[in-house]
Design a protein around this nucleic acid. Structure first.
Length: 234
DNA sequence: TACCAGGTCCTCG
DNA sequence: CGAGGACATGGT
């Protein structure tokens, strides 16, 4: 049972997830449409979402993004200009709002200082270099950097999150750290952005609805047959 | 009520 | 390096 077969089982069970959620023109609420970000505004919305969702449920992030949309703040210059306390109040529902307001402002400041305030300039870097640049920004760790690279810059890197770690551990595929898990996925799968995006989304769906931290739904889990702990013994 | 949610930084050993 | 605390809201 290899990682690609697991992918196919999840896709079979859940269908296409349509990540990353994006806000349509004229709307305020992000939706999973499967549409790739084509405009700067859409790419930036993904960056914002990736930062706001750090250790926070997407539901809470969604409200914050709705607020930002209403105020037309999904804009690099406007985030740079707005007073930090006002920004913090607007993203309040996302939790850690003071810290995250600072991180959003740090990100756009970095972009303005080094890349003429344009994501396209930053994203034109080769993937490894892009990752180094993102990781040099305070508040952007591995998962956030990789989410931005995969879903906003559309380059093929595999995102590891708490769900992925928990699922791999429970399946019996190893209690590994971020780098080890990423290496495991990327060395055994075709380096394809679409595949990596869909796979990660499927793992999130599995982790959120089946392989939950407490009270997992092992009985109806599509991976039950190949799991090391099919009855939640761990 | 306590735990959980699509982490990261800082400090300390 | 890895463990432990801080950061904070909203749902169950």
């Amino acid at each position: 049972m290899d990682l690609y077969q697991i992918y196919k089982m999840l896709l079979d069970a859940f269908g296409e997830q349509g990540w990353w959620p994006l806000t349509d023109e004229g709307e305020v609420r992000p939706k999973h449409t499967g549409k790739k970000p084509s405009k700067e505004r859409e790419r930036f919305e993904i960056v914002i979402g990736a930062i706001l969702t750090q250790n926070t449920s997407w539901k809470n992030v969604e409200r914050a993004i709705e607020n930002l949309n209403r105020e037309n703040l999904i804009d690099i210059q406007k985030i740079d200009e707005i007073e930090i306390n006002k920004l913090a109040a607007i993203i309040r529902s996302a939790g850690y709002f003071n810290q995250k307001a600072r991180r959003l402002k740090d990100f756009v400041r970095f972009l303005i200082d080094n890349y003429d305030g344009k994501l396209e300039n930053l994203f034109s870097l080769e993937m490894r270099r892009l990752r180094e640049e993102l990781l040099s920004i305070k508040g952007i760790g591995k998962e956030t950097a990789d989410s931005i690279i995969l879903y906003s810059a559309l380059q093929p890197i595999f995102v590891i999150d708490a769900y992925t770690k928990r699922i791999m551990k429970r399946l019996g595929l190893g209690d590994k750290n971020y780098d080890e898990l990423q290496e495991m996925f990327m060395s055994s799968l075709p380096k394809d952005q679409r595949l990596f995006a869909e796979y990660h989304a499927l793992l999130v769906h599995l982790g959120k609805n089946y392989c939950k931290k407490s009270k997992p739904n092992c009985k109806v889990c599509p991976l039950n047959g190949m799991c090391k702990y099919p009855d939640n013994l761990n």
